[in-house]
Amino acid sequence: MIAINFKSKKLSILKDIFSKPLYLAILVVAAVLYYFLLYTIIYMSSFRGIVILTVPVYMFYLLVITSAILITISIYGIRKRIAIKDATAGGVVSVVMPSVGGLVAGCGCSAPLLSSLLIPVLGSIGAEGILSYLSAYNVYILGILTVINLLLVYYQLHLLSR
């Protein structure tokens, strides 16, 4: 009974947030912004700006949507003055997740952005080793980033439902 109550309280907060035009507008704007952020980073991470997506397209959109939901709930929490620090952190994470996802969602055979980050530290051969592993597991990495978003959404709803 208690579990059901907690569940329905989180759901009712979600309903409260997304039934308001303001937060729906924030969700849409955030989704558009994050789409362009993710796409731009993939573009910059690709050989000569040629975008070759090596993860399923639905994972690309999942990451965008979950980041947008996370920031919308964070903004709700900030406006309601509930758990402001956690809400702010959630908002920051929602920006970081698509940024990281963009680094691995393109073709790993040539990743100039990551190469530039890794070569000065590891040398060209060492950098290529890491790039290769990131490329091999890029679908899992994007999955983990999406799950982190979802966990933070759940956590924020938990704080808001107290």
């Binding site: 952020l37 964070s74 900030i78 402001i84 702010t88 908002g91 920051v92 920006v95 952005l113």
Partner: peptide, 18 residues
């Protein structure tokens, strides 16, 4: 302040990667 912080992070990310 929280909004400013989030927007700041977004701008930093964009400028950084650019």
């Amino acid at each position: 302040l929280p909004y400013i912080l989030i927007i700041l992070v977004l701008v930093v990310v964009i400028v950084l990667f650019a």
